[in-house]
């Protein structure tokens, strides 16, 4: 009874979000802005002189936003893993898992765009640069996270162990592979280009930082859709198991 009322409330609230004019305006704005940025990246930006292939240097406005938003996604996923272990709400586990999934996609995009430009500029798709080492490790952590999840049957155990692994790996590995060895200056990647005044051309900076903003919007949007979907699936599953007359008391689902 309680669970079905909760499910109804969930459906109602999701429908309300769908028809909210402010949120649909934001989505349309995001679509226009993202399209404009892609066009600007190819047509508005001048080729960057001084690179082996000046035309292809524009890839920076796609590569860097992907990597920044992927870092945001991984951070969000780790924070929700901590919250899950502290409060044990299934919705936090769903959020952590979803952020990891979107983060994996963004890390793959970062790797692919980076490898294309590395081939042109540095002569090989993979150069074992310090940032390439750390991105490889982040990719492997993301994959291992989902491999670990799929091998555990009990959903509560799965969520807790996956959260513990996420914190264990994400807290230690980026620090040890990136921050610590980065004190040495031998890297192929340029340093401080996107934040300092002497760095990139002003046009590049506008497109790049707007790209970060838009891609963050896309990340939030995608995450909300997926989280809502999985929460509904969880509710349907719970109401099914209670309607069958099993002695299951739902205590985890809040209003």
């Amino acid at each position: 009874m309680i669970s079905s009322r909760n499910a109804d409330a969930g459906f109602a609230s999701s429908r309300k979000i769908e028809s909210d004019p402010a949120s649909s305006f934001l989505k349309v704005l995001l679509l226009i802005a993202q399209s404009a940025l892609i066009v600007a990246g190819f047509l508005w930006l001048a080729p960057a002189d001084g690179f082996r292939n000046p035309d292809l240097a524009r890839i920076v406005v796609f590569h860097v936003p992907c990597s920044i938003v992927a870092s945001i996604a991984s951070t969000v996923a780790t924070v929700y893993a901590v919250i899950y272990l502290a409060k044990r709400r299934p919705s936090d586990d769903i959020k952590s898992r979803t952020a990891f999934a979107i983060g994996l996609l963004l890390w793959v995009l970062t790797t692919v765009t980076g490898a294309i430009f590395a081939k042109v500029q540095w002569g090989a798709y993979w150069n074992w640069d310090i940032k390439e080492k750390s991105i490889l490790m982040l990719l492997l952590i993301n994959i291992a996270y989902f491999a670990l999840r799929s091998a555990i049957d009990n959903p509560n155990k799965q969520a807790a162990i996956a959260a513990a692994y996420a914190i264990f790996a994400m807290a230690a590995v980026p620090a040890l592979t990136y921050l610590l060895p980065n004190s040495t200056p031998d890297t192929l990647h340029p340093k401080g280009v996107i934040t300092t005044k002497e760095g990139l051309d002003a046009h590049y900076k506008i497109v790049l930082w707007s790209g970060v903003l838009c891609l963050t919007g896309v990340f939030v949007w995608a995450m909300r859709i997926q989280v809502r979907l999985e929460e509904l699936a969880l509710r349907v599953q719970k109401s099914k198991s209670t309607s069958r007359g099993a002695k299951v008391v739902i205590t985890e689902l809040g209003p």
Partner: peptide, 28 residues
């Protein structure tokens, strides 16, 4: 040791999973 405690809770494919899960952590 930490990864092994997690692996012991899984249902199948323990040895392959142990290598997959501990490898990114052991890379540094």
């Amino acid at each position: 040791t930490f990864v092994a405690a997690m692996i012991a809770q899984t249902t199948s494919g323990k040895s392959a999973l142990f290598a997959i899960v501990s490898f990114p952590v052991l890379m540094p």
